[in-house]
């Protein structure tokens, strides 16, 4: 086993080359953007950063705060949809209707192959109805985002489901007298938490980075407001781009850690 993995694993040097190349691809635009935000006309300073967080400029930057708030609310509602609708449906399909797994997988992976702009064409008339029935608040975008995050959330949760013996754990809990809510809350969720956490974080990252749907449906979110502000203050827009990227990277690191946080293995 060790021999096999040693022969197919890349050598230390190859890994270093891959690491540095990938690192550069990400680092060059970010470092360039960061240097750009430090420019003050004569040299480099933190004056642009100070200005962004200066209360005196709040009027110019108001769209960004509104967009950020809307995006965070959207992230919460979208994650709620993933946890309340997608996860229980996946558990149900895996336990009761395993024959439907392939069809279900096909359906939830579909959004990844549909460009956002095509999705909007279909969603626009639906949003007319939504606008009349539940209002035009930015949070209503969560219904659309709930669809766009499906493939990512599905893969994360399914990986966790595949890692445990869902059926046996469920039947064992039932045989011990557990009701369905107890089975889900006390047995399944704790054992699927890695996948649920990863699904939540990746959904948050997707929502914070989404531009097309929000823009075409005319809702103010972080990405659309960054565009608006960039036309007034390019430095502020660059600073917020950097901050949102840092936030997304932070989320990815948490997801990576969560993946390694296997059930029980880290405890004595």
């Amino acid at each position: 086993m060790a021999v096999v993995s040693a022969s197919i694993a890349p050598s230390r040097a190859t890994r270093a080359v891959i690491g540095v190349t990938v690192g550069l691809v990400f680092a060059v635009p970010m470092v360039s953007t960061f240097l750009y935000t430090l420019r003050d006309g004569t040299g480099y300073s933190l004056v642009n950063w100070a200005r962004v967080f200066d209360p005196a400029n709040s009027r110019v930057l108001a769209p960004i705060w509104t967009g950020l708030t809307n995006s965070l609310v959207l992230a919460v509602v979208t994650v709620g949809l993933v946890l309340v609708l997608l996860a229980p449906t996946m558990i149900l399909v895996n336990l009761r209707f395993p024959g439907l797994r392939r069809l279900f997988e096909f359906l939830v992976l579909l959004p990844i192959s549909i460009p956002a702009i095509v999705l909007v064409v279909g969603l626009a008339p639906i949003y007319l109805v939504i606008g009349r029935s539940v209002g035009t608040g930015a949070w209503t975008l969560a219904f659309a985002y709930g669809i766009t995050v499906l493939p990512f959330a599905f893969r994360s949760i399914q990986a966790s489901i595949d890692a445990i013996d869902l059926l046996t754990l469920t039947e064992a809990a039932r045989s011990l007298g557990a009701s369905w809510p107890s089975v889900i809350g006390l047995v399944l969720v704790p054992n699927l938490r890695t996948g649920l956490l990863a699904a939540s974080l990746i959904s948050t990252a997707v929502v914070l980075g989404e531009f097309t749907i929000a823009s075409l449906l005319n809702r103010a979110v972080l990405q659309t407001s960054l565009l608006v502000v960039s036309k007034i203050d390019t430095y502020a827009s660059a600073i917020f781009t950097l901050l949102s990227l840092a936030f997304a990277f932070g989320l990815l690191i948490v997801i990576g850690r969560a993946g390694r946080f296997n059930t029980g293995t880290d405890r004595p």
């Binding site: 046996t168 039932r174 045989s175 007298g177 054992n191």
Partner: peptide
């Protein structure tokens, strides 16, 4: 339903709750 039948069951595959 199974949760009210008052049975004890041991399964073929390991069924302890991992967490």
């Amino acid at each position: 339903p199974v949760n009210h039948r008052d049975i004890g069951m041991v399964f073929q595959s390991y069924s302890l709750f991992p967490h």
